[in-house]
Design a protein around this nucleic acid. Structure first.
Lengths: 210, 210
DNA sequence: AAGTGTTTGTGAAATGTTTCACAAGAAATT
DNA sequence: AATTTCTTGTGAAACATTTCACAAACACTT
């Protein structure tokens, strides 16, 4: 299926592309130049046919009888995901979790940089020193607009989550990584990814009962 | 479809049951005693037919023409998910993220209690005081076995993630909430839920370009 | 250069999930 | 008590995703 020229790639496939990218990175670190769909799929925890189907959505990069060139495939997936260039991100809500996320060094490696954080009490004393500036929530709209920030991490209390999202969207944010345990109402063209740790635990709890 | 007497409920349905449970909790807080599938579905961000199908997997609880009793439905879903009683959980890896998770007060409300944390350097000075004991990683096997812990949160560095999981499983852990950006190899009867923040951001990044 | 062995790419089949359409049941109204 | 209104529960249809099966393409060996 296609829409405006580009094929429509399933959400799940996009998710797996990210996983493949990480596996490829590790292969490259180990100096491995070529990999078969079988081997890469195993590393990613999927079936090899699924890996090939996933790649087929946006091109054909392999060599039959040999496999895929690790560097080339990395680049192609990176390009498709749009993580080739560094993306600015803001974080809103600097509580326990927000502070931990600001300290987390895993984003930069993947092409994202938290350039600022916002909180209702930016000067409240925190037990940890961090590199990014913490600004008042009132400064958020201007900052986001000025720096053309398109993505935000939301770690505010549930009570203010919806109003915070409204403000972010008004300022131009299109994608939100939401840690507040609430279903946010957003326009169709805005995307929300929810991370709810309690739900993940509940999920585990169910399936290990059998 | 059924297996050993119980119907097989899709993973996605289980996930949504957790969401319904949260929506119901909020309704109850607001003193609302009855809710229609239409209203609850809207609050949960799904279609009403889907909500009814989800519930139909394990029973029929509604009253036609009226809707569902909020308290009763909460109990039924809780019972199905197995979150009726408090579940002990351990956390392994007390770095930035682990520390934040230990401070997170959202688990208890949902029926989970982090009863202890483990780290290779339990006495390393940390900038935050927390309630749970931090023990050496060597004490983990005995502790987990003794307290019959079935679930663990894994926030260790990638390099030691697999060996840590092996040890946890050996001690009797059946469910793992994994924050390490790596695909863990586990036996069939052990369940892993991965939380990978970089992937979530990458995902957003892709869809807001479209 | 021919033959053998691998591995990709892809229609088709199988499986899984969501949505539709509507009968059936209960409440509310007249 | 009959009628209308509302809402559930569910088989069937539509849609989406995964897996299968195998031809095509290339590498490697002899």
């Amino acid at each position: 299926m296609k829409r405006n020229g580009r094929p429509i790639i399933p959400k799940k496939t996009i998710y797996r592309l990210s996983i493949y990218l990480r596996c490829l990175a590790r292969l490259r670190e180990n100096g491995i130049g070529t990999v078969s769909s079988e081997a890469l799929a195993k590393a990613a925890g999927v079936k090899s046919t699924q890996l090939r189907k996933d790649l087929a959505y946006f091109g054909t990069f392999g060599t039959r009888g040999l496999g895929y060139d690790v560097s080339e495939l990395s680049q192609k997936i990176s390009g498709e995901l749009g993580t080739a260039q560094l993306q600015p991100v803001v974080l809103v809500g600097v509580g326990h979790l927000g502070l931990a996320l600001l300290s987390y060094r895993g984003f930069e490696k993947e092409g994202f940089e938290i350039i600022a954080a916002f909180d209702t009490e930016p000067n409240r004393k925190r037990e940890k020193k961090i590199a990014q500036p913490i600004l008042g929530i009132r400064e958020m709209p201007a900052f986001v607009a000025e720096h053309a920030v398109k993505m935000a991490i939301l770690s505010v209390p549930v009570a203010v989550a919806q109003e915070t999202v409204n403000a972010l969207i008004k300022s131009g944010v299109m994608g939100i990584l939401n840690f507040a345990p609430i279903v946010l109402a957003v326009p169709e063209d805005v995307m929300v990814n929810n991370v709810n740790l309690a739900i993940e635990l509940e999920n585990l709890s169910y399936f290990i009962q059998g």
